[in-house]
């Protein structure tokens, strides 16, 4: 026996465009919308939009919204709601079936930019003794030797396609999944998320060959070659 339901309510997250309205009867609004839509007609075709009323003193009657809706429809935009509306504006909007969106961008507060992983930093010259390279928030890739006395630091992974003779500090901001990869592993010191090993504590059989360093069960492990660990 199956249960059927007439409707099912689910959450959904949508991206909506916001059109800021100052004066719904301003002829410039018509022109500006036309210009904007002309840039990418396919993108705007029948797109739902939210009207931001933070700069609008009008739009206090249902007629105002009806006129605005007609204007937007001419540009193939579908108004679905209002944002930053006054009590009077909100009542008028509800009368023509426009929903109220919370004013997330009120008070000029900008939403944080979506987090994009930064590009790894690529170093092609030998990293000399006394040099320090730090990559904030990302990976470091070195395609040259790293000398004893040089220091590589990255919040992400560290890859060295050459001899690693200096220090390598991965996961510097605490990322326990960060790893260190070296084509020829001869490091003075390696560290991941604060755990470290000095070369004295590294078994000699790991030195001079390809290896990776990973944090496994809170201990630094040196894995020969490129095994998955």
């Amino acid at each position: 026996m199956t249960v059927t339901t007439a409707s099912k309510v689910q959450g959904g997250i949508f991206t909506l465009m916001v059109v800021r309205i100052a004066d719904p009867y301003d002829p410039a609004l018509d022109r500006e919308l036309a210009e904007h839509v002309a840039l990418s007609p396919g993108f705007f075709a029948d797109a739902p939009v939210v009207l931001d009323l933070r700069d609008c003193l009008g739009c206090t009657s249902a007629e105002d919204f009806t006129a605005l809706r007609q204007l937007l429809r001419r540009h193939r935009l579908v108004p679905v709601g209002v944002q930053n509306a006054s009590a009077l504006q909100l009542r008028a909007a509800k009368a023509v079936d426009l929903a109220a969106f919370s004013g997330a961008q009120a008070n000029g507060a900008r939403r944080a930019a979506p987090e994009v992983a930064p590009r790894p930093r690529l170093v092609t010259q030998p990293v000399r003794s006394g040099t320090q390279i730090y990559v904030r928030g990302g990976d470091l890739v070195v395609v040259a030797p790293v000398s004893a006395g040089a220091e590589l630091i990255a919040d992400g992974h560290i890859h060295v396609y050459g001899a690693l003779r200096g220090r390598a500090i991965a996961g510097a901001a605490g990322d326990r999944d960060a790893r260190i990869f070296a084509h020829r592993f001869e490091a003075e010191l390696v560290s991941i998320a604060g755990r470290y090993l000095v070369s004295e504590a590294i078994a000699p059989e790991h030195l001079g060959a390809a290896a990776q360093v990973a944090l496994i069960e809170d201990r630094l492990a040196i894995l020969p070659g490129w095994s998955k660990g």
Binding site: V127, R128, S129, S147
Partner: peptide
């Protein structure tokens, strides 16, 4: 050798 390496780094910077 190590001091030379250091000075090469300084030269480049």
């Amino acid at each position: 050798v190590r001091d030379s390496d250091r000075i090469i780094g300084i030269l480049a910077a």
